[in-house]
Design a protein around this nucleic acid. Structure first.
Length: 319
DNA sequence: GCGTCCAGGTCTACC
DNA sequence: GGTAGACCTGGACGC
């Protein structure tokens, strides 16, 4: 457990529209940062690593979707320099999508037969991300070839045993493990303790590569040429097309055997018979239809399956 | 109870 | 360059 006695507090005015509830608590249950974060009465307590520092985070809602205002506080082990404090604040604002303008995506979505429903249902929901790729990369490896329930069990064990626990504001919240920690864990230990199976070796190999050679942050990838960012991600061990699309800040279209059912129904009116075989065709159709907004389209649709099922008279299932 | 199948992919060997 | 097969584990299913 790591105590975080120092804190920085400030006000954030996100680019409207910004729905606090939809952004912090995605309808499909995706966490903001930590799988163990707490959300009560429009306040979220969570933890992550920002610029290499373990950070406890408390954000509360002080505004409305069209006039958003948030009260944020970052808790740290040590008092940061003024320069570092400025960077931490700016990075957190970026990670929670406060600087993201949804306007261009909404313009495209209004003219799309599927997305026009989703942007109405989820008005003001922003995309969020952690500071580095390792949490999402670990997540995507733990999602491989397993039912969601088993992936959740693997993640819970992995985070509680190997993640740092942030203690702040009378809360204790474990963050996703750092590559430097996992690089020193034997794959056999990870496999037996958390029943990761073959994924243990992949996650340790990935951690060792990042710990030894470094890797650009999410924001640095964002500023790269999209093809170069994708190439770097695909070069990592254990990361294939699906995982790269989950991590890539330039936005991919991460189709797996589950989403192949959903998007097969949406695009062609039927679930594919051979899901794995159909993934390339479904992916190509999505990328062609939504281009650079493919990730946002994917994100909005998977968060809105219940409403979309009714609006489009289709059986779009969560699992 | 027991055997078989397969799940929110990726890598490797083989052709 | 394209593709079958292996990979951990555990729940669902048929018998």
């Amino acid at each position: 457990m790591t105590e975080l006695p120092f804190s920085l507090a400030w006000e954030i005015k996100p680019v409207p529209p910004y729905s606090f509830e939809l952004t912090m608590r995605k309808p499909a249950g995706w966490p903001l940062f930590s799988n163990f974060e707490v959300y009560e009465n429009e306040v979220i307590w969570t933890s992550t690593h920002i610029m290499g520092e373990l950070a406890g985070i408390r954000i509360s809602n002080e505004g409305m979707t069209e006039r958003p205002k948030l009260s944020a506080e970052i808790f740290l082990q040590r008092k940061p320099s003024p320069q570092k404090a400025r960077n931490l604040k700016r990075t957190l604002e970026h990670d929670i999508g406060a600087d993201e303008d949804l306007g261009p995506f909404y313009s495209l979505a209004k003219g799309d037969d599927i997305l026009r429903h989703a942007i109405r249902d989820l008005h003001g929901m922003h995309n969020t991300s952690q500071d580095t790729i390792f949490p999402d990369a670990s997540l995507s490896i733990l999602l491989q070839m397993a039912p969601l329930k088993r992936s959740d069990e693997m993640m819970d064990c992995y985070i509680t045993n190997y993640g740092e626990e942030a203690e702040f504001d009378r809360k204790t919240i474990p963050a996703w493990p750092l590559p430097e920690r996992i690089a020193h864990v034997g794959p056999e230990e990870l496999a037996s303790k958390c029943k990761l199976g073959y994924r243990a070796k992949r996650i340790v190999e990935l951690a060792r590569r990042i710990a030894e050679h470094g890797f650009p942050s999410i924001e640095e990838l964002e500023h790269m040429d999209p093809d170069e960012a994708k190439r770097l991600l695909l070069d990592l061990p254990g990361i294939g097309s699906y995982s790269a699309d989950i991590i890539d800040p330039h936005g991919g279209f991460p189709i797996d055997v589950w989403s192949a059912d959903v998007f097969g129904l949406l695009f062609f009116g039927e679930e594919p018979k051979d899901k794995r075989k159909e993934i390339p065709r479904i992916k190509e159709t999505g990328l062609k239809r939504w281009g650079k907004w493919s990730w946002m389209a994917f994100f909005y649709i998977v968060q809105d399956l219940g409403n979309l099922s009714r609006a489009l008279d289709l059986e779009l299932r969560m699992e």
